[in-house]
């Protein structure tokens, strides 16, 4: 028969074993955690650097060794941007219109295309899908001259359309959404058809709700790539009135002959990146889910 002190001893023993297990587990995970932490720092540090530099004076932003945190915290860099000869609201408005319209256009084209490639049979389906993948691989630098000439012929160069129409068909989005649609069991679609659902209803009521994560991910990627696009607006526009925010940030970069004002430039980048970060914060869970669901994680 156990005495009270025996019971205490065995409890103490259990605690000791548990502690030893936890320690062993901790030690086992430690190298992996260190690597993960290093990767997180690697990715987060540039953002941290951008934000901290945005609040430094010019001299502090260029001094060596650099300061990790602003010694003299200032908001002057943001007010300096406001005082420059740059119509920031106009560029911002253009960026919003270009990005929103392109994403809407992409969704309108991408959803039916992905549905057809995933769930319908038609002649030359494989070849046509190959064409989509080909479009995915051709960089804009190869196509911009012919597109520029097309847009000039259509008298669209003085509008926002040259920055929207060429991106209307998102090859990567079609590919990714097709993969997501393919994972939806055929039986669900068959039972919907038995209930007299049209193809449109199947897309709207079954495919899209079940692929919400993939949709948000694609939209997010599109948003980032269109919002941050610099090359395309530079070569495709000849009028400041139709240029996006990235072109305004470029003006901050060359704020002196050979002397980049890093603090002002980083303040501009904070303005540029802020919408992306805000949207990412709302969409991050869906993005992770989409990659997990598609087996890409």
């Amino acid at each position: 028969m156990n005495t009270y002190s025996d019971q205490l001893a065995s409890k103490e023993e259990l605690r000791r074993i548990s502690r030893a297990r936890r320690r062993a587990q901790f030690m086992r995970r430690l190298p992996g955690d260190i690597v993960k932490l290093a990767i997180v720092i690697l990715f987060v540090f540039p953002f941290y650097w951008m934000i901290s530099t945005a609040f430094k004076s010019y001299i502090e932003s260029i001094q060596t060794p650099p300061t990790l945190w602003p010694h003299t915290f200032t908001l002057e860099n943001f007010s300096a941007i406001g005082e420059m000869n740059i119509d920031l609201p106009m560029y911002f408005k253009n960026s919003v219109i270009i990005t929103a319209t392109t994403i809407v256009l992409q969704l309108l084209i991408m959803i039916p295309a992905a549905y057809a490639f995933a769930k319908r049979d038609f002649p030359f389906k494989g070849v046509l899908f190959g064409v989509v993948l080909l479009a995915f691989m051709i960089p804009g630098q190869l196509t911009y001259i012919s597109i520029y000439l097309m847009m000039a012929k259509a008298k669209l160069l003085q509008t926002l359309w040259p920055q929207i129409l060429p991106f209307g068909a998102n090859a990567f989005g079609i590919f990714m959404l097709r993969q997501s649609f393919k994972q939806i069991p055929e039986e669900i679609l068959e039972s919907a058809r038995l209930d007299s659902a049209s193809e449109f209803q199947i897309i709207m009521r079954i495919m899209l709700p079940m692929s919400k994560s993939a949709m948000i991910t694609i939209a997010m990627f599109s948003f980032i790539s269109i919002w941050n696009n610099y090359f395309w607006p530079l070569v495709m526009t000849t009028n400041e009135a139709v240029r996006p925010l990235t072109m305004a940030i470029q003006k901050l970069r060359d704020s002196g002959d050979n002397a980049i004002r890093w603090n002002v430039l980083m303040a501009g980048n904070v303005i540029l990146v802020a919408p992306v970060l805000v949207i990412y914060m709302f969409a991050s869970k869906k993005i992770l889910k989409a990659f997990a669901y598609n087996g890409l994680k």
Partner: peptide
């Protein structure tokens, strides 16, 4: 917004001036 971005100019002769001044003192 798309239609009005590059709205028709009034009865003015437009001179488009292309330059290399991306920012800073030269752009000013």
């Amino acid at each position: 917004s798309l239609c009005t971005v590059a709205s028709a100019e009034e009865e003015k002769t437009i001179v488009t001036f292309w330059h290399h001044a991306s920012g800073g003192a030269l752009y000013d």
